[in-house]
Design a protein around this nucleic acid. Structure first.
Lengths: 235, 235
DNA sequence: CGCCGTATTGAGCGCTCTCAAGCTAGGTGG
DNA sequence: CCACCTAGCTTGAGAGCGCTCAATACGGCG
């Protein structure tokens, strides 16, 4: 997509970190310098790619990850609509993690140099950016929790809160595979499957294919906090 | 310390994220609005404290953590001289984690509102700040690694790279307790002790009290990457 | 309808945890 | 200056959670 092309607005834009900044600039120097449409499994950038832009998710979802010598994938983070990825690349000046679409995805490219200019002119954009960074620092604080149930409960609750337009905050679209969740939480895919089944049997959630409906977020919070099974749990 | 007081320079300042910005302002409106000296175990801020400032470490070290219902501590991050903490509090507008000195420590307080003003005037400060944020995002990517040895090796190597003035990059001052390291890596303190002993027996490191000397960073990197013991390891 | 990737479920093993007992180092007071 | 005291570290033994390997079930897509 050519630089300066008009930026269309879609439903997720109104929840985006950038707010209206991506559309408020003059046509010759927009903040968002292009879009990219990715199919599932397509790469946004790869380990050691040179850095010049960060990206905002317009729709879909992206995972950032490393591959170890044995070929095992360690997922560093998932990114959902409205969220920004690529900050990791600023300091080393290359991407230290690879990024791949886990579903059909559209991203907005933000030139880092242009972002610096914008921030200087618009203090409010700096606020938005730091809020996004701040939120990101709070993601995944639970990945070292003692038990698999603690990690999974925390993960589900966090996802509920991150999904834009989630009125009920009860329905989660599990766009990532069990393997991906496992690679994020430091657990085997089979363990993810088992824990979800246990949650289902305890009537804490309903699983319908890739969608999860949280029935009892209070008990999930208990589990997330201390890993103790609730009194009336007969796995 | 009164606002506007002259900011003294110590050895760690020249490696600080803020660079010279903390001293470059006019006396009526400095970026650093005060200092705080903490003894070991003293609290810098606590969970749910209201947010108005972030902090730069001048000397010493700080840990940020949560306490669960069972009283177990989960450490989110360690902060060393020159590093900045408190970003997590921007979005919720309160501190979602507690912060405590793990050794005698001195911090510089940075008013967030003043930081916003400064960034607008000084694009270079924005660059420094984003570099710091970027670095921080790359910390601890290994905490979900499969084995305890992988996590510990990665942790040691990361610490080597983070210590300011570390010419050899081989000596690490382990200012935190085994328990703290365990709470950070999601392992028991006993496991930390055992892994360090194994590294010592394999002649990968030398442990003298709280100091660690890395003898074979190459093998540590192998362990960090795939958890495989090297051929000549007789734990 | 049949294929293939993904998810589920089971059995057995192994790494890490827990519990517990020494050990070490640093600080305190006689 | 040394004995004591305490907190932290080390090391051992046994148990348990999650991993691996494997078989089966499911579901999307041609």
């Amino acid at each position: 997509m050519a630089v300066g092309e008009a930026v269309e607005v879609n439903s997720s834009c109104k929840h985006c970190t950038l707010g209206t900044f991506c559309r408020s600039a003059d046509p010759d120097s927009p903040l968002v310098t292009g879009h990219q449409v990715l199919k599932r499994r397509e790469s946004l950038y790869s380990y050691r790619d040179s850095f010049s832009s960060i990206y905002a998710i317009a729709s879909g979802a992206i995972k950032t990850f490393q591959i170890d010598v044995e070929g095992k994938e360690r997922i560093h983070q998932f990114y959902l609509p409205g969220e920004i990825l690529g900050f990791e690349a600023i300091h080393p000046n290359y991407f230290p993690l690879s990024a791949m679409a886990i579903t059909n995805t559209k991203v907005c490219r933000i030139s880092y140099e242009r972002l610096i200019d914008f921030v200087t002119i618009h203090p409010h954009l700096f606020r938005r950016l730091m809020e996004s960074v701040s939120q990101r620092f709070n993601f995944g604080v639970y990945v070292t929790a003692a038990t698999a149930e603690q990690r999974m409960a925390s993960f589900l609750l966090e996802l509920c809160g991150r999904i834009p337009n989630n009125l009920s905050t009860q329905d989660v679209d599990l766009c990532m595979s069990r393997q991906d969740i496992g690679n994020y939480l430091g657990l085997a895919a089979e363990t993810i499957s088992r824990v979800l089944s246990r949650f289902k049997n305890r009537k804490l959630i309903v699983i319908t294919n890739k969608k999860i409906n949280v029935l009892d977020s209070v008990k999930l919070q208990w589990i997330a906090q201390d890993g103790l099974a609730d009194p009336d749990s007969f796995s």
